[in-house]
Design a protein around this nucleic acid. Structure first.
Length: 575
RNA sequence: GGGCGUGUGGCCUAGCCUGGAUAAGGCACCGGCCUUCUAAGUCGGUAACCGCGGGUUCGAAUCCCGCCACGUCCGCCA
């Protein structure tokens, strides 16, 4: 269908603006990309028809004839009420290849913006290993971190550690009161896997035994009062779990810059200031010594529009501390981004409203994702109904290994095959999650998760490996290149695609849409495969064409590698 | 009961914000292409009343209204 891209705007808008100004058109000029080979950009004239009292076809003719020259536009055609622009492909080829060759690793990266953005992601309760139900969070988060870095921002990633909640309290109780033999054995030696059993069994006690419930309530209360010893005790219980999470994240190429414990904002009393300030707003009401904001006038609907921020016993709530956290972040950044599960939609909106009431100027942009569920329903750490991220990672790599072995067993060494399997397996995991928009529901099946067919990472990595293979066979002394000899439709298609990367990054960062980068990546690989089919490189007799094609192949590897890197995926040189 | 999100060939996804020329890919299915750079590739074919019903418009998958299905939330939990 029609894709709207801003690239055409830069080239065609000034020309159109010039021609159309006399008509005083009361709306913005919109450029689109026409289907097939009708042109590179198009301007539809239908909206002008009633204004000018002429047919769109006639208007298109008139505009096409009066447009000024542009170095980028080679030809203009009027067709079926559209003005179609054909760009100068020679110029595009020269400039694109030059830019890629010159910028190499930074091609696609935009100029520094001197702006700081804090991206908060993952922030999972440290009560057990990361599971696939929320695996979208780190992957979307880290991809956005990379996209924003490429877009020229100074980025800090943060993991908000919930060290004050009931979940960690249950874990801590379990660690203190249960023995190792009370816990079902686990094969995985990582601390998070070893400790999650304590959390699960503690939950069973909690459900059956009222005194356990009291003890846990007591722990939570002490935490909220800022009791130093309790916070320390909690910390020693969850720290190994968090360490295990970090290891899992590190396996899928994710490093988080800062871990911010929730208790920070109780300790430094900033949460008390939030309470004091919220009490002074006109929306604050008291009920039984507890305080809430009435959110009805802010468009919050439902059975209860009361947003409680202070309990009867004077302690704060999760959301209250979250407000303090966001105020703190807002002081150090120009832009805030949160990656949250869809269950946080209401809470996040309430926090935003509270922040506005407190005159916080920088409000978070929030990316919500739908959970990855199992065919029978939601995943649950408590009930042990989960697929752990670590297990999925292992399976992906193992499956990739089987596939490599099937194809290359005689040709590659064991080490090479293991290395490729890791690159493909890990890439597959990230790609399968990032390629769909976050709001879409995903039901986890091993079949889909391990799918290497079609629009999947091996297709893309394979294109890169093929390109590398060509480059590895070239002569050391190739003649200089002339990009204007690249006139085959498949060459031009590829060049146009490579030229899009900076726009894709700009768009994906502004709209917080990492999946559009994945879609672009697929298009590059697909376009390259068509070029590979149509345009032999090494066997090309004309030395100038051969060297120019080699340059195009080299440029493609750079674009594939850079784009893969922006998604945290590695680019194997052989497969 | 209310809010928010999602609904596109048999299955999965893009396009929706910012309405335009034959609704674009993948899987599956059928039929081609390895004496030429890696066939994890490539070409062709079959397959869609874009959830349903209205409306706005010269033009609607896209905007507006109503309805339906699924998900999610509506705690002095986190």
């Amino acid at each position: 269908m029609i894709r709207k891209k801003t690239s055409g705007d830069l080239i065609t808008k000034p020309l159109l603006q010039n021609t159309l100004t006399p008509y005083k058109i009361p709306f913005e000029i919109r450029i689109q990309i026409p289907p097939g080979s009708l042109g590179d950009f198009a301007f539809p004239c239908f909206p002008l028809a009633p204004l000018l009292k002429k047919s769109p076809q006639q208007i298109a003719q008139d505009i096409a004839h009066t447009l000024p020259q542009s170095p980028w536009v080679k030809r203009v055609e009027a067709q079926a009420g559209y003005v179609n622009f054909f760009i100068d492909t020679n110029r595009l080829a020269v400039e694109t290849l030059f830019a890629i060759q010159k910028q190499k690793d930074t091609y696609g990266h935009l100029k520094k913006k001197n702006k700081k953005v804090i991206i908060e992601h993952t922030s999972a309760n440290p009560n057990g290993p990361l599971h696939v139900g929320r695996a979208r969070n780190p992957i979307i988060g880290d991809s956005l971190v990379r996209i924003y870095r490429a877009a020229g921002y100074n980025v800090e990633s943060q993991f908000y550690v919930d060290d004050m909640g009931k979940q960690v309290a249950i874990l801590a109780w379990g660690v203190q009161h249960l023995k190792k033999q009370d816990i079902p054995p686990t094969e995985n030696p990582k601390a998070d896997h070893q400790l999650v059993g304590f959390y699960q069994v503690a939950n069973e006690h909690l459900e059956k035994d009222a005194s356990v419930a009291d003890q846990i309530t007591d722990i939570v209360k002490k935490l909220e009062q800022g009791d130093h010893d309790t916070i320390q005790m909690i910390h020693s219980a969850y720290a190994p779990v968090l360490e295990g999470m970090k290891q899992s994240l590190s396996r899928i190429n994710i490093q988080i810059d800062s871990f911010i414990p929730e208790s920070t904002f109780v300790y430094d009393t900033s949460v008390d200031h939030v309470v004091t300030s919220l009490k002074q707003t006109p929306y604050c009401h008291e009920e039984d010594n507890a305080y809430y904001l009435d959110m009805e006038s802010f468009g919050i609907h439902g059975r209860n529009t009361k947003f409680f921020f202070l309990r009867r016993d004077g302690t704060t709530l999760y959301a209250t501390r979250d407000i303090a956290y966001h105020q703190w972040k807002a002081k150090q950044a120009d832009l805030l981004i949160d990656i949250l599960g869809e269950d946080h939609r209401l809470e996040s909106q309430q926090v935003k409203i509270a922040l506005e009431l407190l005159n916080t100027t920088i409000l978070p942009k929030v990316v919500f994702y739908a959970f990855v569920s199992l065919p029978g329903g939601k995943m649950s750490t408590r009930r042990g109904r989960v697929v752990y991220l670590d297990d999925l990672i292992d399976e992906c790599i193992e499956h990739a290994y089987e596939e490599v072995k099937k194809r290359r067993a005689g040709e590659l060494t064991e080490t090479q095959m293991r290395r490729i399997a890791e690159q493909v397996g890990l890439g597959s995991l990230r790609y399968n999650i990032i390629k769909v928009q976050p709001e879409k529901d995903i039901v986890f099946t091993w079949e889909d998760a391990l799918n290497f067919e079609g629009n999947a990472i091996p297709f893309i990595q394979y294109a890169h490996a093929r390109a590398c293979s060509i480059l590895s066979k070239k002569d050391t002394k190739e003649p200089p290149i002339d990009a204007t000899v690249l006139n085959h439709p498949s060459e031009l298609q590829l060049i146009k695609k490579l030229a899009e990367l900076p726009l894709v990054i700009d768009d994906a960062s502004n709209a917080c849409k990492p999946h559009s980068v994945a879609n672009y990546l697929y298009e590059v690989a697909s376009t390259f495969n068509q070029f590979y089919r149509d345009c032999p490189v090494l066997s090309e007799q004309n030395p100038l064409l051969r060297s120019s094609r080699l340059a195009l192949v080299s440029a493609t590897t750079i674009v594939l590698r850079n784009t893969l890197d922006i998604l945290g995926i590695s680019a194997p040189e052989e497969m």
